[in-house]
């Protein structure tokens, strides 16, 4: 059965094209890939005509947020479209800024096909050269999340993950911005018995991705968003 890839996009052009080309190359090997791409209000809208055309094993579904809502919101939109589109063997979340590679999407999908409900990417086991300050922030986040969720994971905020259908159904995302990574773990922890594994992946750090991506101060915004949702969010 084919694999779904949930892909948030915000002002990515060259990196998006590379990421999609990588997925197209592994699509047959995975038994088919459908990318659910959500353009999160990019200044220049993603043009479907400029994206790779479908092949027998590869297909892209494009949706667009009329205004920028944030990465979490984009993944949630992709989640809803993907769940309604059909049954997939695995649902992989993956960034489009060039930091994530198709070979890791394959590894995560395989973990779910092999019986895991949720496979989290772990950049500390792959070959990533994580910048020093980022490593410290991630270590603090890991401790924080262990206490918050009870999940013992090595990597706190990694956009590379995969879900089984029954797991993805139980992980709706309310956090529009970057706190969704923490929220996902909270929901996975609360969802009851799910088989959770970590899979080594590589997160590529380049000058370009570091300039555009979140600064380590983003951690403060994440704490604020979590507190805000806890205090003012709808009870569940």
């Amino acid at each position: 059965m084919a694999v779904a890839v949930l892909m948030p996009v915000f002002d990515e052009v060259a990196a998006l094209r590379r990421t999609l080309a990588g997925l197209r190359d592994v699509a047959a090997e995975l038994g088919g890939v459908t990318v659910f791409l959500v353009d999160d209000g990019s200044e220049i809208p993603v043009a479907p005509d400029a994206l790779p055309p479908p092949t027998p094993s590869f297909r892209i579904v494009v949706a667009r947020h009329g205004v920028n809502l944030g990465q979490g919101a984009a993944i949630e939109t992709a989640r809803q479209i993907a769940l309604a589109d059909g049954d997939f063997a695995a649902y992989v979340t993956m960034d489009s800024d060039g930091q994530h590679g198709a070979e890791d999407a394959v590894a995560l999908a395989r973990a779910v096909e092999g019986g895991a409900d949720v496979a989290f990417g772990n950049r500390f086991l792959g070959g990533s050269r994580v910048p020093f300050v980022r490593a410290i922030v991630l270590a603090a986040a890991r401790t924080f999340e262990r206490h918050l969720t009870g999940l013992r994971l090595a990597d706190a905020h990694n956009g590379l993950r995969a879900f089984s259908r029954r797991a993805l159904e139980r992980v709706p995302i309310r956090q529009n911005r970057m706190a969704h990574a923490t929220e996902i773990k909270q929901r996975v922890a609360r969802a009851g018995p799910l088989a959770v594994v970590e899979v080594p992946v590589t997160v590529r750090y380049t000058a370009e991705t570091l300039a555009k991506g979140q600064s380590s101060l983003g951690a403060v915004v994440i704490l604020r968003d979590l507190a805000q949702q806890y205090l003012f969010g709808e009870a569940e």
Binding site: R59, V61, V62, G66, T77, Q80, G233
Partner: peptide
């Protein structure tokens, strides 16, 4: 703050509903 969160949730729902309704597969 509570009102702001409510407004943001409503905006999200509206923007998402439109995005889902207009989602299209890239064609050959």
């Amino acid at each position: 703050r509570r009102r702001r969160l409510e407004d943001a949730e409503r905006l999200t729902q509206a923007v998402r509903a439109l995005a889902v309704a207009e989602a299209r597969a890239v064609e050959a």
